[in-house]
Design a binder for these strands. Sequence first.
RNA 1: GGGCCGUUAGCUCAGCUGGUAGAGCAGGGGACUUUUAAUCCUCAGGUCGCAGGUUCGAAUCCUGCACGGCUCACCA
Length: 497
Amino acid sequence: MASRRQDIFEQRKQKLERLRALGINPYPNRFERTHSARQAVKLLETMEANAASGEQKAVVRVAGRIMAMRKMGRAAFFDLRDGSGKIQVLFQTHGFSEAQIRLFDDIDIGDVIGVEGSLMRTRTGEPTVAVGSFVLLSKALQPLPEKWHGLTDTDTRYRQRYIDLIANVEVRDIFVLRSRIITAVRQFLNDRGFLEVETPVLQPSAGGALAAPFITHHNALDRDFYLRIALELHLKRLIVGGFDKVYEIGRIFRNEGISTTHSPEFTMLESYEAYADYTDVMRMLEEMVSWVSQTVLGTTRIKYAEHEVDLKPPWQRMTLRDAVKEYSGIDFVKYPTAASLKEKMQSMNIAFDPDQNWAKLVDELLKTFVKPRLIQPTIVYDYPVSMSPLAKSKPNEERVTERFQAYVAGSIELANAYSELNDPIEQRLRFEEQMRERHGDDPEQWTIDEDFLTALEYGMPPTGGLGVGIDRLVMLLTNQQSIREVILFPQLREKEG
RNA sequence: GGGCCGUUAGCUCAGCUGGUAGAGCAGGGGACUUUUAAUCCUCAGGUCGCAGGUUCGAAUCCUGCACGGCUCACCA
């Protein structure tokens, strides 16, 4: 009779009241399952394999949400789905009590029910539970999206992810994979003797990167705090403290633009290993990523967008200088100032922002010319010091740091890593330089993590550090082109009204 | 923040150069005891994102706004 959401809601509430009047609780506390949908199907297959042992009937109790109903007079097939999968159930109402028939008549698609019955196969071969009795476990008052097309409206999919998960199995699969990927990363690091730690999200100053922070206020202390923009500075304190191998997988917050590869809150892995340098980290990264892929997907050969990628080590390695030279034709070492580099770029008709400093220009070249060409996983290493304030310089090459980034599939920045700068004097100079560039000459405007510098003054062993964007790793391994597809509840603007 | 595209029934979508809104699924009623996008008959369902404007007349044209998508910028 009804079609508008409110009418459907009212109609279903009436069904609810009818059931209550019959003494049926539409939201009972418990239903004891003997099998998940998948287990029930497995059991049937096992029984069939052992059919020689004679006739046997297995009675199971399964539960799930009704995804489809095919009613045919006194018989009906429902598709039931639980967390494990789907199973068909067959109702033959001739043996049912009056109350069960009344309940059957008021059941809707979307309701959660529990059934007890024997396992069988229909004449078309579909594994089926022939229902002996059933109970309502939860009445759905809202209608489900269309069964064939599911839910495609991205707005609704992100805002009401639960509907997306009900309607679109592929979406569910992505998040199952995400969980497995993170579990595998943990296992890899734990197996190598890394200690998982937790460091503060609320910080008096947000360091370790240059991104704009979110600011919040602590009432009792009456002061502002920043949500962390990196894990780096606290993990290094722990290296100073004597933990030789630490890592954290944690949420990072950056108050910046949102895009298909940027989310204001995202998940970062950072690991630090004492007595290692960036070449050790390179090997660990490629082994970790390929192992995780092998463990979770059963292969290191994956598809991403139009690309075929093999994550198997060893990955291609190129210095930043060679990479930029090869793909853009510019040897930036020959243009050591912003002015000379701009002149060169101008002569080649390469667009750039006139306000950009030298490091930004090089980064621009990397992003525009190099990154799109790196389809197979590639480690680009040895960055200019001005691009890498927390990385250690190469011996005898003051302007170059032991830093690398890993790129793959023409678009994904998988990792950023370096031999960590552990000279406290040099670190202070780099911070000051950075602050001067960003906030001008007035030290009052600067925020420098003094305690971190103090920690370095106690002596940090030579250390190799690694940062991996977990969301991007998940995008890579699940072949998703938008970061929102791998974050369960992505940040959206509030809808008015 | 800029550009482009989108927003029509609960869901998925039609709706032409302006003439006052349609389908499928879902829903109500009916038929049907092995279907699986079940089938058949039937009924109902709309602030066409919001607000203005042009026009005799606007889902349709124009402007503004909201939200979303893509993209550019920003983001070491």
